[in-house]
């Protein structure tokens, strides 16, 4: 059964077809990588699923429900967690408070004006931080953390509403190779434990080929390949968009 179904999704900016009739499914418990060269339409695709951009046409189905055009906060309430390419956290709060904020929102307590926020859902927040290995830093200011740690905190925040689906836009961007592997291994173990589905974009092919259950490839707004690591590696179309045909200069020579 698929958690997320994308049907014929389209979006253009001016004359550029950023996403041009893309369809795919994310199954329950699946760790799905969305890759493609720069400008392939990955982020646009992501932002449409997340609700930041309104699609021109097509359907985004979360389970049975069509979520086209819902704002991000409502998409989140449907059980979709999100991490950003540049980690977004609340700099003036402690690490634990960042997670508590998401838990408070999940419990619909945002307009509670007289209780003490720092005491709400504290145990649950610490438990989430333990899962991402950040419990020891719970009371530090989030702005003091190293970037790799901020990414872990962001992951804990994204898991706070017990999402069915986690959207991760370049989860390892800006991290050292060792940190990268650790973070993705962590995500993968959480996915297996909790049965969450993850859709992620990624530039590091090591990460993608080592961890993804399935890979889909976008190029110029179209989906050109879909399969497991080996099938993608051997797909001639994928090789072409990543390495080119190697004939650019040959043609120039012929022309000359």
């Amino acid at each position: 059964m698929s958690v997320l179904s994308i049907r014929n999704l389209r979006k253009s900016f001016g004359g550029v077809h950023a996403v041009d009739g893309v369809s795919f499914d994310v199954d329950k418990g699946e760790f799905l990588a969305l890759i493609g060269p720069n400008g392939a339409g990955k982020s646009t695709c992501f932002n449409m699923i997340n609700g930041q951009i309104m699609p021109d046409s097509g359907d985004i189905l979360l389970g049975e429900r069509r979520i086209n055009g819902l704002p991000p906060r409502k998409v989140w309430r449907q059980g979709v967690g999100r991490t950003f390419q540049i980690a977004a956290t609340f700099a003036s709060m402690t690490v634990a408070e960042n997670v508590q904020m998401a838990l408070i929102s999940h419990a619909d307590e945002l307009f509670s004006m007289f209780s003490v926020a720092a005491r709400r859902h504290r145990e649950r927040a610490i438990a989430l931080l333990e899962q991402v290995g950040m419990a020891a830093a719970a009371d530090r200011a989030c702005r003091e953390l190293a970037y790799g740690d901020v990414k872990r905190v962001e992951l804990a925040v994204a898991l706070a509403n017990e999402p069915r689906l986690l959207l991760m836009d370049e989860p390892t961007a800006g991290m050292a190779p060792k940190e990268r592997n650790e973070l993705i291994a962590l995500v993968k173990s959480l996915v297996v434990e909790r049965g969450i589905s993850v859709l992620f974009t990624e530039h590091s092919m090591d990460v993608v080929f080592a961890f993804a259950d399935r890979i889909i490839v976008l190029a110029r707004g179209r989906l050109i390949a879909d399969g497991d690591a080996r099938a993608i590696r051997e797909n001639p179309k994928v090789q072409e968009v990543y390495f080119g045909t190697g004939k650019t200069f040959e043609r120039a020579k012929e022309g000359a």
Binding site: P71, P72, R73, R82, S105, E154, V157
Partner: peptide, 10 residues
Amino acid sequence: DSPLRAEAIG
């Protein structure tokens, strides 16, 4: 602090 993150957690 971060309107983007705030909207993304509802």
